[in-house]
Design a protein around this nucleic acid. Structure first.
Lengths: 211, 211
DNA sequence: ACCGTCCACTAAACGGCAATCACCCAGCCC
DNA sequence: GGGCTGGGTGATTGCCGTTTAGTGGACGGT
């Protein structure tokens, strides 16, 4: 009697996550809440509740909260890197590549707003010390692929002004500014997004590259 | 005897801040800590300690933490608005005005990094409901002055591409992106800041405005 | 069958945060 | 003097991320 009485009650405890499966569960739940409620809204307790375990259990699989969110960002940025690399490999004009990369960058940011903001608007609150290394390395790789394409333009003498670095960084910064403002100020009376994208890209390329 | 014995001991308590002076003291201390330690580093307790009162005392003068920081931002943005208005009133070419405004915008952001980020990188954490109204109104005024100058350019048919709005917003966004990245990614291997500013402004004006 | 060891997990607690509560006391008006 | 008011306080609440001590089941050796 005692066994049949007590055992079912203890089943409130979630069974062990078969091997490393629990880690994936946590990442999935964290991404969902993170996308739905942003960085500060995604608390350890909410994520743990979603998975169905105690908040402490998350510390079995991740050192701290930042490690969870950084891992989510890593996979997002890896996607951007793949996109850039794929464009870089195409057999087309370097200027066309740059335009495609910047356009893909904008698309990526608008489709992955929270991951984008976490990586590229990197507000204080996390990082603290050398964390974010892997994520930053991925971001750097994205920039490297991009700057190399700009270098191809510079090599043919088609940079209207500035160095390869300053031109590449200006283009990147301009597109970053556009999506950052679109994401953080959604209530502003913006011109139609498509027109903004077009004007920004046309202006940048016409302003920095000679035909 | 009793009076001379007791009164000096109670002087541990800070005397009343004569009228509305305490409010100014708080704003001053808050700005100092806010600039030194950023948004999350500026806690109610630290500010109160700096002033020499209990944390509760701050709630006598401000509804909550956000109200303190927003008021600091207001004065910073008001400074930017004065700068823009002053440039707008000069008897010079509209294109030159736009360049001066964008350059002043960048200077302002780099000199008031925390206020700038709070207003223009408006990360979640505050706002929640209709707060930030006054601050946003000031920001809108800055934009209005700017967009009217761009409109002057458009009126003379010198906009190379896009509408007045999309051109003005692209220029603003591009400069925002530059300073936002400079502020949030200070460890990146940037080109020299002066060169970046020059390339960005030259590129934008050459890309969006015909001579 | 039994015991030790590990491992995924838990409840409880810690310290810090913003914000609220009940209260205190000096100065003022009547 | 007596009561009111307003700037001030310590204690408390309810979150947060994180830590600690411990629990229970699976597994391997004997």
């Amino acid at each position: 009697m005692t066994t049949t009485l007590k055992k079912p009650q203890r089943s409130a405890r979630k069974p062990k996550g078969d091997g490393h499966m629990r880690r994936g569960e946590i990442l999935l739940a964290a991404e969902r809440i993170f996308l739905a409620e942003g960085y500060h809204g995604a608390t350890i307790r909410k994520i743990a509740d979603e998975v169905g375990v105690s908040s402490t259990a998350l510390y079995m699989h991740f050192r701290d909260k930042d490690e969870i969110l950084l891992e989510i960002c890593d996979s997002a940025i890896a996607k951007l890197l793949r996109s850039n690399s794929e464009i870089s490999a195409r057999p087309i004009d370097a200027v066309a590549k740059v335009r495609l990369m910047l356009d893909a960058y904008i698309t990526f940011a608008l489709e992955n707003p929270n991951a984008y903001q976490l990586v590229f608007c990197g507000q204080s609150g996390l990082v603290s010390e050398g964390k974010q290394q892997a994520t930053e390395a991925l971001g750097d790789s994205c920039y490297d692929v991009f700057v190399n394409t700009v270098r191809d333009i510079g090599a043919t003498g088609r940079l209207r002004t500035g160095t390869v670095d300053s031109a590449a960084q200006s283009m990147w910064a301009a597109c970053h500014g556009l999506v950052a403002l679109l994401l953080t100020k959604p209530t502003f009376h913006w011109a139609p997004t498509q027109e903004l994208r077009g004007v920004m890209l046309d202006g940048l390329l016409h302003g920095l590259v000679t035909d």
